[in-house]
Design a protein around this nucleic acid. Structure first.
Lengths: 345, 345
DNA sequence: TTGAAAGCGCTAACAC
DNA sequence: GTGTTAGCGCTTTCAA
């Protein structure tokens, strides 16, 4: 690879001038610039970004830590995050911790503050206080997709009002006349999605409906787990007329299970999820869900991180709350039609 | 961030010694090492990887260029690629070109040879000869998931025998007694998936079946496109007893469409895809498909790239062929049961 | 076993 | 406008 001084030599100028041609073109005579550009092209010169980072004291790189990109939720987030980063002139390194806290720690200590100027953390197994320590010694850290707006972490974060999402799901099912509702509660590596469940339960209680623990399953956050749990739940409680899942993956698994069981959706059973991943509108019946607007969250998270990096002295907000979730009604929910058990309606 | 010399000062040694403690521990007296380690801990020192890269002349980073991580095929590839890279001591930068050749070019010229020591390219819109030019001036490039083993590019590549995959799909459907078979041919940004289609057609012809152009759709490589195309195809050619898709996404879209149409799978219509993405076993009915072993391909690709980087003078193989694809039989295919049109069987 | 010194490729004052 | 110089944080001979 050709270097700056190679170019300088060929163009018969000094390295500083070449650097200026690239970064402060107005500071150099057009004639000279032209000569330099020709040399650059001739040699196929590319600025060494490592050297530049070292000299400038900034790498223009951000890191995004997540448990496993194989979870269908993440790709959409990553895409939006990378766009946001790119728009602001940053690269984005995606770091899969592979559901292994050790790998996460290794990434953190290796790249935070050296390769990356800041890191965005999506639910991982690493404890908050570890993250704080890292942020103190190295680069700023932003927690994204924080599930508990009422209980903020000691780190800047982008919080999502998942309790409200659960609320919307509950209201929707109640309005449709459902009373016997099963729950699938996801357990990602960030912990149980209990804010979503709590929001749901609150609305149910306000409607005078006590939650039936036998109709609740706490399971890993995957389609397969949703499938299995739904199969089992419906055989145990065949009277359920609706299912609430804290996550679209679980809901989609449930959809598959109901099809397997010959229960029609939404005629026999309604299903509602949370998140609105791409798959939600691609399955049939398409999934009614509460959209959190993943793209907006990703962008807000990146923007917050960049602000932390570029204005380290400013008094910063500790938490941003993402736009309120919104119910997206599709094909998987419908009015409850009275069956044998509830002939009176 | 503390630097090497900060540590050196605190431990009352010189920077070289600190460096040795970290990289050649045997070269330094245990006693000194202990003192240095304490200073490192005390200051929360982390080696600046940019500086190290500059000094060593190697960044230990690989780049992976793909069109959009939102395509459900990629996450599995990325996960395996990152694991392989990590095992060999490399970081992996994932670069979404967002289906935009300009962004791809920008990434390539910016990071190849400077931030990244090599780049793995998955079907993008960038022309091969552009890639060659880049490889000539900068870092090695490996093409992964190459679809045409019989016609190799001027770049090292990992080829997948997709024609054979098509062959397997055709044989499977023929053995089940299917004769009227529709085709959904995907058109990713790397171009039409015609090797897969060609393999399929060859087997059909050998069986004396001439392909019916009216039963073929060339469409974008998405679930939605597969859905729409299948809807339209089945209304135009209701006698089709099976569908072959060059890609699982299309096949899954077709599955949804058939459900919508009230056509049972596999009783009325069989469906077979290619790739075996995760979703293939998560949908119901689960998808019969030809598995290409994405993980193995990703790993082989990374390994080849690393070999190219670390042994630049060696005489290198220009192409690796991935393990042969394998039929994975699931629920979406079954014997053809004679209908009205083919009462004789 | 440790230190001194040069250099990786670039940027940014500052001087000419 | 352009060149000179120093320095970013690290590794790596080579001496001591």
């Amino acid at each position: 690879m050709a270097t700056l001084s190679d170019v300088a030599r060929l163009a018969d100028v000094t390295a500083a001038t070449v650097s200026n041609v690239l970064r402060n073109p107005n500071k150099v005579r057009p004639e000279t610039a032209k000569r330099v550009m020709r040399a650059i092209r001739e040699l196929g010169y590319r600025p060494n970004l490592n050297a530049r980072a070292l000299a400038e004291g900034r790498s223009s790189t951000l890191a995004l830590m997540l448990s496993s990109i194989a979870n269908p939720f993440y790709p959409e987030f990553v895409l939006a995050a990378e766009r946001a980063a790119r728009r602001s002139g940053y690269f984005l390194m995606v770091c899969n911790t592979d559901d292994d806290a050790e790998i996460g720690r290794a990434y953190l200590t290796q790249i935070a503050g050296t390769l990356a100027e800041g890191v965005l953390v999506l639910n991982t197994d690493i404890a908050i206080n570890e993250l704080c320590e890292s942020a103190a010694v190295g680069a700023p850290i932003v927690l994204s997709m924080w599930e508990h707006p009422e209980q903020l972490p000691a780190l800047p974060c982008v919080a999502v009002d998942f309790a409200y999402a659960g609320t919307l799901a509950a209201q929707h099912l109640l309005e449709l006349g459902h009373r016997d509702i099963g729950m699938l509660i996801g357990d990602g590596c960030g912990g149980l999605q209990d804010a979503r469940a709590a929001g749901f339960r609150t609305v149910m209680r306000e409607a005078g409906l006590e939650p039936d623990d036998a109709a609740v399953r706490e399971i890993p956050d995957t389609i397969d787990a949703g499938f299995t749990a739904c199969l089992e739940l419906m055989s145990r409680k065949p009277d359920l007329s609706a299912l609430f899942a804290t996550n679209d993956l679980l809901a989609i698994g449930a959809l598959q299970a109901l099809a397997t069981l010959g229960r029609r959706v939404p005629e026999d059973v309604s299903v509602v999820g949370i998140t609105d991943i791409q798959l939600a509108h691609q399955v049939r019946p398409s999934l009614t869900t509460v959209a959190i607007n993943t793209g907006a969250i990703a962008q807000a998270s990146i923007d917050l991180l960049i602000r932390l990096i570029e204005e380290p002295d400013a008094q910063h907000v500790q938490a941003i709350t993402a736009p309120a979730p919104v119910l997206v009604r599709r094909q998987s929910t419908a009015d409850h039609v009275s069956g044998a058990r509830e002939a009176r309606g």
